[in-house]
Simulated assay, not measured.
Amino acid sequence: MRNPLDPAELNAAMENVHRAGMPGLFAEVRDGDQVWRGAAGVADVATGRPVTADMRHRVGSITKTFTAAAVLQQVESGQIGLDLPIGRYLPRRVPGERGDAITVRMLMNHTSGFPEYLPYAYASLKAYPVIADTRPQSLEDHRYTRFDPTELIEMGVTAPAVGAPGGTPGVYSNTNYLLLGQLLEEVAGTTAEQYITRNVIERAGLQDTGFPTGLCVDGPHSQIYEAWFGMIDPPRDYSVYDMSWVGPTASLISTVTDLNRFFGRLLAGEIVSPSSLAQMQRTVPVVSQEGRTIDYGLGLHPMEAPGQGTFWGHGGTVWGAGALAMTSADGNRQMSVAVNLQRWNRLDSSGKPQPHPIDDALAALYRVAMYG
């Protein structure tokens, strides 16, 4: 049973995250017609400029939900077969037996077996995701690098597989969603970003959401700070960055208000059909980039607490920025939270992230926002 919004409780939970070490965060929580927006901390640690709840923000892999919705629109129109092999559409990108064995659905739910391309694109991240062996200098080296998506895809497709096609648990990989971006381009005759803008972002009526047009975030925004597990100390601002390293997998810019509007309309069947939404909510076990096994559908994953019901949405991180957007299955309760620091945990001797007070404070904020 969810409780009504309590602004004082929400403000206190936000302040606790800031006090735990998060420079700044902002959020919007909705319950029916009741709306709360809040912010805590600073958008710039040098000047003390405060964060505000209307700021635009890099929302990372929440982009995947937009891309998945776009692909499912093309499934509805008969241009794409959800259970047809990707090799039928992109024979040069995924040739041979794997092109015949891996379906569009397997890309969408991360059961293709394709590994992450990032360790190959960021040369010094060779051991990724064995993060203890990585060097943060590679983030600086590639701040202005313009990546070609076809080259990134080739890195992921030609690297050793992390599983058999359709096998579970799947392994979360940006390679899958870069391929889906290429698939959209192939069937729609336009770039994935242009298709998603016209048919998903505009259909949802989002005013402050879009793909980056340059290195900077347009409009009011926070600086975003990357700690890289304590190896960048003090954390460095990466708000100016070429986002071609993720493209239609994780480069979207949005606001917490727009994220709630999008997920509300998606779960109401206004972006894709109810039958497509049901496909999005069919989950399989997938190993996340943090090494946890989660349930994952087609660009959506659930969060639930005993007796409290299920929420659907997505989280996302890029260098320095993070966001989480979740909406209850009935659409009545929504939460979108944005933070301006990433990888705050230090690593133990085995390379495993150590607990940090921010983790508990964020978990408490999510509980208050979703359930009261």
Score class of each variant (00 low, 15 high):
Thr255Asp: 08
Ala27Met: 13
Ser350Phe: 09
Ser222Thr: 09
Lys64Thr: 01
Gly181Arg: 09
Val59Leu: 06
Val42Cys: 10
Asn109Met: 09
Gly309Arg: 04
Met335Arg: 03
Asn3Ala: 14
His57Leu: 06
Gly247Gln: 05
Asp6Met: 06
Pro149Thr: 07
Gln334Pro: 06
Pro23Phe: 09
Gly315Thr: 08
Ser288Asp: 04
Thr283Arg: 03
Asp44Thr: 11
Gln137Trp: 13
Ser251Thr: 12
Ser288Cys: 10
Arg37Gly: 04
Met55Glu: 02
His221Lys: 13
Ala161Arg: 11
Pro160Arg: 12
Gln182Val: 14
Phe66Asn: 00
Ala8Glu: 15
Ala43Met: 11
Asp100Lys: 15
Asp360Gly: 15
Val187Asp: 03
Ile358Gly: 01
Arg56Lys: 15
Pro234Arg: 04
Arg19Trp: 08
Ala192Arg: 06
Gln182Met: 15
Val75His: 10
Val286Cys: 08
Ala188Leu: 09
Gln334Phe: 03
Thr63Phe: 09
Tyr371Trp: 15
Arg261His: 11
Ser273Gly: 06
Pro165Thr: 06
Ala70Gln: 10
Ile153Arg: 00
Pro50Leu: 02
Phe66Gly: 01
Glu28Thr: 07
Ala278Asn: 12
Gly41Cys: 09
Pro285Cys: 11
Ala278Ser: 14
Thr168Val: 15
Pro234Gln: 09
Asp218Leu: 13
Leu341Gln: 11
Ser124His: 12
Ile358Glu: 00
Phe311Pro: 01
Ile86Leu: 14
Pro85His: 05
Thr317Cys: 10
Phe147Ala: 06
Arg333Asp: 00
Ala321Lys: 03
Tyr89Gly: 05
Ser239Glu: 10
Val187Tyr: 05
Gly297Lys: 00
Asn199Thr: 06
Glu9Arg: 15
Pro285Val: 05
Ile201Gln: 02
Val272His: 02
Tyr120Val: 14
Pro274Leu: 03
Ile196Leu: 13
Arg19Thr: 12
Met14Gln: 13
Met155Lys: 14
Asn16Trp: 08
Ala364Leu: 14
